[in-house]
């Protein structure tokens, strides 16, 4: 276990520094890249915060669908193989629910403002 500050706190300090002290000094393409860099740090921050729980629930669903536990990467590869082989498909309610939940979780970390996430939530609720 590392000492304080935590990874999230360090990240926060770096973001504040870049936002308040560096960004105002930049112009044109460098300013644009700084905006992209800050958005990238936001992704890292959300992944630190939400990633572990999302990965746990993803793994639990995969275990249920495939009938055995394993490392999340291996389980995903197996799901992929079975979709390719046609022994599992998108029409399977468990597979469908799993892919929707997993993808919604990904979007929540990577692009939480993306309209497709809202569309997916509206769909789930109807």
């Amino acid at each position: 276990m590392q000492n304080r500050p935590t990874a999230a706190e360090l990240l926060d300090a770096v973001k504040t520094f870049l936002n308040d002290s560096v960004k105002p000094e930049l112009m044109d393409h460098t300013a644009f890249n700084m905006m992209v860099a800050l958005k990238s740090l936001d992704i890292v921050q959300r992944e630190l915060e939400l990633g572990p729980e999302f990965a746990d629930t993803e793994r639990a669903r995969l275990t249920d669908i495939l009938g055995h536990d394993g490392k999340i990467g291996d389980l995903n590869a197996e799901l992929n193989e079975r979709l390719r082989a046609g022994t599992l498909c998108l029409d399977d309610p468990k597979v469908k629910a799993h892919l929707i939940e997993t993808t919604k979780a990904k979007v929540q970390i990577d692009q939480p403002k993306y309209s497709g996430l809202r569309h997916a939530e509206e769909k789930t609720n109807t």
């Binding site: 860099a37 990238s40 929707i100 993808t103 990577d110 497709g116 569309h119």
Partner: peptide, 20 residues
Amino acid sequence: GVEMAYIGRRMCEAEIDLLN
């Protein structure tokens, strides 16, 4: 550039749209 790396994390947009 950082923009190229960042765009990789937009792939989930296409994935959620595909499911929709």
